[in-house]
Design a binder for these strands. Structure first.
Length: 486
RNA sequence: GGUCAGAUGGCCGAGCGGUUAGGCACAGGUCUGCAAAACCUGAUACAGCGGUUCAAGUCCGCUUCUGACCUCCA
């Protein structure tokens, strides 16, 4: 059942058999958020995708060290390296300390991650906490001759690097194309080549976040932190490096160059990239103005939305598409997911009430195999979900007494649903009402059943309609009356 | 302009050489006081034009359209 796992590797543009360097240990690094504003829904999709990968590797028995950084400094804005640090810029506007901004959005990010049931990574390092490591890395790259210093700033020499390495391995672009098609930006007199990028930036008088270094008081370049922190926690060469597909051409390309220049090793075996969330066919992004925040989606408070959708509906919606495909957001698609998710969870809830027969008309093993097959094929969650709907159909049929299942298969079915719905997909039942609602409802349901058995349908319908209006739906079955929250 | 991806039924989305993915919506049926749910059955599909093959959404070429990246982005 645990056949080989295949993972699509951006480096080779193929699905490759996954082989951990140090099995059962797996090192995985994913580029985390820059905490200068709220994470929008598109950001969330990436972290949900890697959450599934993390969860499935764990499920297969790997011991995963999952490192996802927080960029709380060093991420420049505007034209290449001439801009200001994003965090500092925001801080000046709001008259806040940079760390105050970083703290605020870090807390917000964690909240959203938790609401969406995304597991925390094993290590979540901060860029500001690793300036020393970053400075050391710059020193090494300078020593190896792949960088040069100009007036307190240090730049990576891309053309020199490309003479002995392939700078475009990940993006599939060659240097000539890049050179001829890259816009020449102003204010870059210090750089020798137009593709060169900053490793260390000398602080300007107005720079708020700055650290001493051998070259100047300044700040590290953005690409540096991931190289420094992945090496610190996962070593020079680890298993999986991930991030959004939009990080390929610049951030990850530069990261590889830094690592190769410093130690001659490409950081990771498998490069995994998640695709974008689109709205009406266009990438969701802040600059296009079509992005919205998770809490707006939950509450429905955004003009794009007809209504709010629960966090698990959002998660389910995203898992119904493969992580490497673009996923288009629409109200219709959300509503379809909402109903589908309810259907799945409804049958999941029925599982505990199923009775085993002495014979069986279903065989769960092959269904289970197909679930593993789906996930082993580059984490194909939509196919997994299709299989789980088959399980759902079986559960409902058994519950209705239309299908027989024996104890052994029932146990397998329970294991299957628990493993895949809860552990791997990370879905959870949002209907589980705490408090004392069940008792109150049972009382009301009993009242209605009394009316029903005396054929007082006027009263029984009145009760049912009344509950419907406050969001409780009653369903009469052979075994009695059930209720669910709508 | 350059580079790279896509175009699948009313909608969302898998599949990528031969066998109806799945969900939502729709139609018919079973059950039920009626609903709802559930179950059964059904109809719609692979952008266009050529080619390869016994066989092509699935491979190749061209055309059209869309998107991403080339500048910060998950």
């Amino acid at each position: 059942m645990k056949q080989d796992l295949f993972v699509y590797n951006t480096l080779t543009r193929k699905k490759e058999k996954f082989k951990a360097i140090n099995a059962p240990h797996v090192g995985m690094y994913v580029c985390g958020p820059t905490v200068y504003s709220d994470a929008h829904l598109g950001n969330c999709r990436t972290y949900i995708s890697f959450d599934i990968i993390f969860r499935y590797l764990n499920h297969l028995g790997y011991k995963v060290r999952y490192v996802r950084n927080i960029t709380d400094a060093g991420h420049l804005e505007g034209d290449a390296d001439e801009g200001e640090d994003k965090i500092s810029k925001k801080a000046k506007l709001a008259k806040l300390e940079p760390m105050e901004i970083a703290q605020k959005y870090t807390v917000g990010f964690h909240d959203v991650m938790q609401i969406l049931n995304i597991l925390p990574p094993s290590i979540e390092p901060l860029a500001t906490g690793h300036v020393i490591e970053q400075i050391e890395l710059v020193k090494t790259i300078l020593e190896k001759g792949y960088a040069y210093e100009v007036d307190g700033s240090v730049y990576f020499d891309v053309e020199k690097y490309n003479s002995t390495n392939d700078y475009g391995v990940l993006s599939g672009r060659n240097l000539d194309d890049l050179l001829t098609n890259t816009r020449s930006l102003g204010g870059q007199q210090e750089k020798r080549g137009k593709l060169d990028f900053a490793l260390w930036i000398k602080a300007k008088p107005e720079t708020l976040m700055k650290w001493p270094s051998p070259w100047s008081v300044g700040l590290p370049g953005w690409h540096l932190e991931c190289s420094a922190m992945s090496e610190k926690y996962l070593g020079e060469h680890f298993d999986i490096h991930g991030g959004g597909i939009d990080l390929i051409p610049t951030h990850h390309t530069n990261e590889i160059a830094q690592n190769m220049a410093a130690c001659g090793k490409t950081p990771a075996n498998y490069w995994v990239h998640t695709n974008m969330l689109t709205v009406n066919g266009q990438k969701m992004s802040k600059s296009l103005g079509n992005s919205f925040l998770p809490h707006e989606l939950f509450s429905g408070e955004n003009s794009i939305l007809n209504k709010g959708y629960s966090p698990m509906t959002v998660r389910f919606f995203m898992l119904q598409a493969h992580y490497r495909s673009t996923l288009d957001f629409s109200n219709d698609a959300m509503e379809a997911s909402e109903k589908g998710f309810k259907r799945l969870m409804n049958s999941f809830g029925l599982l505990k009430d199923l009775k085993a027969s002495s014979t069986t008309e279903v065989e769960i093993k092959s269904l289970s195999d197909r679930c593993y097959e789906a996930m082993n094929d580059d984490f194909n969650s939509p196919v997994l979900i299709a299989e789980l709907f088959e399980a759902s159909r079986i559960i409902n049929s058994v519950y209705d007494g239309k299908l027989k299942i024996d104890a052994e298969n029932l146990e397998l079915l329970k294991q299957l649903m628990n493993s895949f719905v809860l552990d791997v997909l990370g879905l959870k039942d949002e209907q589980a009402a705490g408090d004392d609602l069940p008792q109150v409802l049972n009382f009301i349901v009993n009242l209605r059943n009394e009316a029903k058995s005396s054929q007082d349908y006027a009263t029984s319908d009145k009760i049912r309609n009344g509950l419907q209006q406050i969001g409780i739906q009653l369903k009469d079955t052979k075994e009695g009356t059930n209720w669910t929250k709508i």
